[in-house]
Design a protein around this nucleic acid. Structure first.
Length: 426
RNA sequence: GGAGAGGUGCCGGAGCGGUCGAACGGGCGCGACUGGAAAUCGCGUGUCCUCUUAAUAGGGGACCGUGGGUUCGAAUCCCACCCUCUCCGCCA
C-alpha cells in the first residue's frame, strides 16, 4: 500500500509508476475520494467536539442539581447528525481503501523501464554451460529412468502437478532443503524458522497476495485459510502489527515450506514435469531492514541465494526485471535463472525483491530507531533461496552421466549419504 | 466439540456510566545528588487521523480484543464475533 499523503503530494509520480508497471488504477478517483473524506472528517469532528462539550455541560448541570433536559435533547440531535456523517465517512473510507489496495508499488528509479519480460536485463552470468559428448536426457526422462520422481502416481493421489519423490530422489530433495537451510543459517546469518503452511486472510493481505492473486491460491473455505504460495507470507507476517526495536534490525529469516499454487490460467503451458507444479518445496529468505539500507540488503540477499548455486555448481544468470515485469508489490526485483541443458534454456529458480515499505504499511509493521523515536515503516525483502523443483531440473540434467546415472554434487553428499544415483538403485 | 476464566498503555495491574488516555507499580528517558556508580528524589514517557504552520509547535477527533447496540455521555451496560488460558472429550 502506498502512503495516501504521498499520493496526494505526488500524483504524477504515482501515475507514471503505475503506467510503467503496466497496471491500471484510478488515481484521480482516489484523490477525489480523499478530498471528500477529509472534508467530512472536519465536519464530523467539529460536531463531536460540540457534543463532548455539551455532555460535560450535562454533567455539570446535574451535579449542581439543575435541569439539563434542554441540553440533552439538543445533544441528542447532534448525535444523530454525527451518526449520519459517520456512516458516509465509513462508506468513503471503505471504497478509498479498496481502491488503494489495487494500487501497485512503484518501481524504484533504478529499474529499467520496459513492457514485459523481453525488456528484462541480464546482469551477469555464472558458471560454464556444460557440454556433453553423449546424447543427454531431460529431467523427466532421468527421473523416470532412475525411478526417483513419480508423476503418474502423484496424479493418482492428488492430481496433475503433485510430484512424488521416491527413494534416492526423496533423499536428494531433503538433502537440498537441509543444505540450503544450513548454509543460510550458519553462514549467511539468517535465523531459521518453521512456519505454518496455512494462513489467514489478513496475512495474505499483509504481503499483498490479496486482493490481486486470490485466484491463484488454494483456499480452505470452511476455515477461510489459504495454503501458502510461498513462505514469504507466513514469515513476513510474523511481525505484523508490531513495532520492532531498531537495534534488532536487520531481521533476517530463512525457512522451508511447501508452496501451493493453483496456476490458474496457465493451462497448456509447461504442464509436464517440474516446470509448473501445484506443490513444490522452497527455502525462502526474508529480511526486514531500515529504509536506507534496503538496496544494499537486496544485493546481499541476491548474493546469498546465488551462493547456493555456486556451491552446487549449477550455472545461472541474474536478470533484472523491467518495470513492466515487476510484480504488484515489488519496487525492484532480480530473477535468478538456472540452466537446463536439455531444454537449452534458462529456468527461473528465484526472485529476490525489495518491497520497500509497501508490505510494511499493509502489515502495520514498524520500528523505532531508538526507544524514544517515532515509529517508522521498515523495508521488507524476500527471495527464494531457492525453489527445489527448478533446482532439481538443473541438478539432474547438469550432473547426468553417459551411463544414465546422476552424480551428486560434493556439497550435498554429506546430506544424501550417497555420491551417485544409478539406474539399478532402488 | 463441551464447561469455565480472561482479553486495558512497553510490561504487571486497577478502574461506582460523566472530572479516564486511563490510578498504582515496574521499565525507559531527562535532571538532581555522587569522584563515579548503586540507592534516593524530581520531571517526563502511546498511537493513528485531521486542521493551522515553511518548520518547531499548537488546536481538534479517535483508540481500553473486533464489530454492532443502548445512552446527552461507555474502558465501564447489552449483543455478536475473534483470540488466549484452564479442565473434560476426541486425536496424529
Amino acid at each position: 500500500m502506498l502512503d495516501m499523503k504521498f499520493i496526494r503530494e505526488n500524483p504524477d509520480l504515482v501515475k507514471q509508476g503505475i503506467r510503467n508497471k503496466g497496471e491500471k488504477a484510478d488515481v484521480d478517483g482516489i484523490l477525489e475520494l480523499d478530498e471528500k473524506r477529509r472534508t467530512i472528517i472536519q465536519q464530523v469532528e467539529s460536531l463531536k467536539h460540540e457534543r463532548n462539550e455539551m455532555s460535560q455541560e450535562v454533567s455539570r448541570l446535574k451535579k449542581e442539581g439543575k435541569p439539563a433536559d434542554e441540553v440533552i435533547s439538543r445533544t441528542r440531535e447532534i448525535s444523530q447528525t454525527i451518526k449520519d456523517y459517520d456512516e458516509d465517512l465509513k462508506k468513503i473510507e471503505f471504497s478509498l481503501k479498496e481502491m488503494l489496495d489495487w494500487i501497485p508499488n512503484l518501481p524504484h528509479e533504478s529499474v529499467p523501464v520496459g513492457k514485459d519480460a523481453s525488456d528484462n536485463v541480464v546482469i551477469r552470468a555464472w558458471g560454464k554451460i556444460p557440454e556433453f559428448d553423449f546424447e543427454i536426457s531431460g529431467h523427466l526422462e532421468i527421473a523416470e529412468r532412475l525411478d526417483i520422481i513419480d508423476f503418474p502416481r502423484g496424479s493418482k493421489v492428488s492430481g496433475r502437478g503433485f510430484p512424488v519423490y521416491k527413494g534416492k530422489g526423496a533423499r536428494l530433495e531433503r538433502a537440498l532443503i537441509n543444505f540450503m537451510l544450513d548454509t543460510h543459517s550458519a553462514e549467511h546469518g539468517y535465523r531459521e524458522v518453521f512456519t505454518p503452511f496455512l494462513v489467514n486472510r489478513e496475512s495474505m493481505y499483509g504481503t499483498a497476495q490479496l486482493p490481486k492473486l486470490e485466484e491463484d491460491m488454494y483456499l480452505c473455505q470452511e476455515d477461510d485459510l489459504f495454503l501458502i504460495p510461498t513462505a514469504e507470507v507466513p514469515i513476513t507476517n510474523l511481525h505484523r502489527d508490531e513495532i520492532l526495536d531498531g537495534e534488532n534490525l536487520p531481521v533476517r529469516y530463512c525457512g522451508y515450506t511447501a508452496c501451493f499454487r493453483r496456476e490458474a490460467g496457465s493451462w497448456g503451458k509447461e504442464t509436464r514435469g517440474f516446470l509448473r507444479v501445484h506443490q513444490f518445496n522452497k527455502v525462502e529468505l526474508v529480511k526486514i531492514v531500515t529504509p536506507e539500507s534496503s538496496y544494499q540488503e537486496l544485493e546481499s540477499l541476491l548474493k546469498d541465494a546465488t551462493r547456493i548455486l555456486e556451491l552446487l555448481g549449477i550455472p545461472y544468470r541474474v536478470i533484472e526485471l523491467c518495470t513492466g515485469d515487476l510484480s504488484f508489490g515489488a519496487a525492484k526485483c532480480y530473477d535468478i535463472e538456472v540452466w537446463s541443458p536439455f531444454e537449452k534454456r534458462w529456468l527461473e529458480a528465484s526472485s529476490c525483491s525489495n518491497f520497500e515499505d509497501f508490505q510494511a504499511r499493509r502489515l502495520n509493521l514498524r520500528f523505532r530507531r531508538v526507544p524514544t523515536a517515532k515509529p517508522e515503516f521498515p523495508h521488507s525483502l524476500n527471495g527464494s533461496g531457492l525453489a527445489t523443483s527448478r533446482l532439481m531440473v538443473a541438478l539432474l540434467e547438469v550432473n547426468q552421466t553417459d551411463e544414465g546415472s546422476v552424480m551428486v554434487p560434493d556439497v550435498l553428499r554429506k546430506y544424501t549419504g550417497f555420491p551417485i544415483i544409478k539406474r539399478e538403485d532402488y
